[in-house]
Design a protein around this nucleic acid. Structure first.
Length: 415
DNA sequence: GGGTTGCATGTCGCA
DNA sequence: GCGACATGCAACCCG
C-alpha cells in the first residue's frame, strides 16, 4: 500500500527559479506563446502594480514567479508520492532574491522580494480604507501547468483571486498564497451527493497522485481556518480518469455554496496547506471571462461595473432550456441550448460569447486602479487639504486590471 | 425505502 | 475525433 490513510497535506519545499538560467530557456511553441503573453503584460504594467499592491498592504504575497518567461521551462512542481511517509510533498520553486532585484515591473514575478515603493494612489487608502486598486491585478492569476503532463489548464480554471480573498485566506499570517485553480460549482457539485468533480489536469497537477480509485483523504483548510477532510479519488472513465472530491457536502453547506458559485484552491506556504476558498455567484462573474471585472467577496466594489455585479441578472433560463444572456444596454442573445430535460443552469457554459456587447463603465475609483505611474519618474508629494498626493511629471499609463500570474511553470497568460 | 456508490453515457470544447 | 466533464442511473447499503 503506497498510500496512507492519513489525511494528506500539501507540503512545500523551496526550490530555485533562476531567471537567468539559460539552460531553462526553451523555444517550444508553447513557451514562446507564454513569452509573448508575458511581454504583453509588461506593456500595460498591471502585473507590477498588482504584485506591489499585495506587498504594500502587508498581507500574504502571492507567488507568481512562473509568470516570467524564463521560468516557463523550469521543472514543474513535482507531486511525489513517498511510500515511506504519509506526508504528501509538493516542490514549488521559489525565486532567488537576486533574480528580482530591480526587476519588479519587468519580471513582476516574485512578490516577496520587491522593494520598489508603490505610489500611494494604488494603496486604495483614499477610499475609506477599502482597497479598490489591487484586486483586479491579482484576480487573474494563472496556475501552474500540469505538474506531470505539463498540459495547460483551461482558462475557466485559472484562479482569479481578489485581494480580499487572499486576505481572507492568509489572515494575519505571513504565509504566501499560491493560487492553484478554481472551479465553478455545477449542479452536481453543489448537490447533496457531496461529490465535487475536479478538473482532471488540476487534480493531477496540484493534488497527490493516486493510483487506486479509492484515492486518499485530503486535508483542506477553508478560508476561516477550519480544516476539512475530503476523499480525493477518481473513477475510471473510458480510458481516462475522473477525479472527484468526496464528502464536500458539509463544507459546501457551511460556505452556503450553490451551483454557479466558485470554489478556489490555493496553497499556503510555507505551511504547504491546501486552502479552499469560495466566491459566491452573486459576487463573481463567469470564470471564463478573462480581464473582466469581479466584485469582491463582501460586495465591495472594485473594478466591477455595477451592472456587471450580479450575474444572476445576466442569465435567464427559460422553460425550453435556453439560457438567455442579458447584456448591458438591454441587448441579449441566446448562448447555447441546453439539454431540454433539465432546467437548471449549467454554470459551466455560462459565458459571454460576444464580448463586443459589453460596455465597461468605470467609476473614478475604478479608473484609478487602471492607472499606472510612468516608469522611471519619481513622484513629488503635494499636500492638498491634508491629503497627500503624488505628482508625476509624465502622464500615467493606462493598464488593464487583469494581470496576475501564479504558477511556477504554468501560464503567464497575460492580457 | 431512502441514501450512497460506482460506473455509464451524452454533450461540449479543444486539438 | 477525442478527451473532459456533468449527470443519469442501476446496484448496493443501511436503518
Amino acid at each position: 500500500e503506497l498510500q496512507s490513510r492519513v489525511p494528506y497535506e500539501v507540503d512545500i519545499s523551496s526550490g530555485t527559479n533562476k531567471l537567468n538560467g539559460s539552460e531553462r530557456l526553451s523555444s517550444s511553441p508553447l513557451e514562446k506563446k507564454k513569452t509573448d503573453d508575458f511581454s504583453e503584460s509588461l506593456m500595460n504594467g498591471s502585473l507590477k502594480l498588482g504584485a506591489r499592491e499585495i506587498l504594500e498592504n502587508g498581507n500574504a504575497g502571492i507567488k507568481c514567479e512562473e509568470s516570467h518567461s524564463s521560468c516557463l521551462s523550469q521543472q514543474p512542481p513535482s507531486i511525489k508520492e513517498d511510500p515511506s511517509t504519509p506526508k504528501f510533498s509538493l516542490t514549488v520553486p521559489h525565486a532567488s532574491s537576486n533574480e528580482t532585484n530591480g526587476q519588479i515591473g519587468v519580471s513582476g514575478t516574485h512578490l516577496r522580494t520587491t522593494s520598489t515603493p508603490l505610489p500611494k494612489q494604488f494603496h486604495g487608502n483614499l477610499h475609506g480604507g477599502v482597497d479598490l486598486s489591487g484586486e483586479a491585478q491579482v484576480r487573474n492569476g494563472r496556475p501552474r501547468v500540469d505538474a506531470r503532463g505539463r498540459n495547460h489548464l483551461l482558462s475557466r480554471y485559472w484562479p482569479r483571486f481578489t485581494h480580499q480573498e487572499l486576505q481572507q485566506i492568509s489572515g494575519d499570517s505571513n504565509s504566501v498564497i499560491t493560487p492553484l485553480f478554481e472551479k465553478m460549482l455545477s449542479a452536481s457539485d453543489a448537490g447533496r451527493i457531496g461529490r465535487l468533480v475536479l478538473p482532471k489536469k488540476c487534480a493531477e497537477a496540484y493534488f497527490p497522485s493516486i493510483s487506486q480509485p479509492e484515492g486518499l483523504p485530503l486535508k483542506v483548510q477553508d478560508a476561516k481556518g477550519k480544516e476539512w477532510i475530503f476523499q480525493f479519488r477518481f473513477w475510471p472513465n473510458n480510458n481516462s480518469r475522473m477525479y472527484v472530491l468526496e464528502g464536500v457536502t458539509p463544507c459546501i453547506q457551511a460556505m452556503q455554496l450553490q451551483a454557479g458559485d466558485i470554489v478556489t484552491f490555493s496553497r499556503l506556504e510555507p505551511e504547504g496547506k491546501l486552502v479552499m476558498g469560495f466566491r459566491k455567484a452573486s459576487t463573481a462573474q463567469s470564470s471564463d471571462q478573462d480581464n473582466e471585472t469581479v466584485k469582491t467577496v463582501n460586495g465591495v466594489s472594485t473594478h466591477g461595473d455595477a451592472e456587471l455585479a450580479d450575474p444572476s441578472s445576466w442569465y435567464k433560463v427559460d422553460k425550453s432550456g435556453y439560457i438567455a444572456k442579458e447584456v448591458i444596454g438591454g441587448k441579449s442573445s441566446i448562448t447555447r441550448k441546453r439539454k431540454s430535460s433539465t432546467l437548471r443552469p449549467k454554470s459551466k457554459r455560462l459565458r459571454i460569447e460576444n464580448e463586443d456587447l459589453i460596455e465597461l463603465k468605470l467609476t473614478w475609483e475604478e479608473a484609478q486602479g487602471l492607472l499606472r505611474p510612468s516608469p522611471n519618474h519619481a513622484p513629488s508629494i503635494v499636500v492638498i487639504e491634508g491629503f497627500e498626493f503624488e505628482e508625476y511629471e509624465d502622464a500615467p499609463i493606462l493598464g488593464k486590471p487583469s494581470i496576475f500570474a501564479t504558477s511556477n511553470v504554468g501560464y503567464s497568460g497575460f492580457n
